[in-house]
Amino acid sequence: MGIIGEFSELYLFPNGLFITIQLAITSLLGSLVLGTVIALFRIAPLVPLRWLGGGYVEFFRNTPLLVQLFFLYFATPYIGIYLGEPDTFGFRAAALGLTLYHAAYVAEIVRGGLLAVDKGQIEAARSLGLTYLGMLREVQLPQTFRAVIPPLGNIGIALVKNTSLAATIGVADLLFAGDIVESRTFRAEEAYAAVAILYLSLTIPLGILVNYLEKRMLVAR
């Protein structure tokens, strides 16, 4: 009969999948926005902003994600940082940790893309009277995002997989669902195979989406 026979446990998977999707989308959007801001800091005309951006990237890229999550989950209550009530606390800590960590990688990719935009583009925009921020918004950032879609896609896929670390701080995500099913049925091979397949059902479509976006942007360029 196998796992399909244990009907009473199966509802755990869609619930876990839903939490994983929520966590991934929240953290992905968060890290894109935060990473872009950090990247802009890193190339800013003001030196202190550049230091701040550089320090951020070095810190979050060079410490393990799991340690960051443990810190946010276990240590924040002791240092007076309030992340939510017990029922939402784990999810928020996980979303924040995933955002902070992946923003460092996004920042490095976006910074590279910003620097790769031809200097003539910037001069042309500024000579039309656009302000520095206007130039960023209308000219430099749009060209940057078109160029960095493939590496950003890689970060997105890594992020989806890294959401599984949230299970270690009590978030009832996909891996957590697998753990419960395994502990109730003692069918580890089927439980974790199902979990792996469900992760694939997220990452493979994401990869296809990234390829599609890349092709569309190439036409426009």
Binding site: D118, G120, Q121, E123, A124, A125, R126, S127, L128, G129, E138, V139, P142, Q143, R146, A220, R221
Partner: peptide, 18 residues
């Protein structure tokens, strides 16, 4: 503000490709 009144054309065109 000054640059609004001064048009510039470059050797390498510098049109916005997007």
């Amino acid at each position: 503000k000054l640059r609004r009144d001064v048009g510039m054309v470059f050797q390498s065109f510098n049109l916005f490709p997007h």
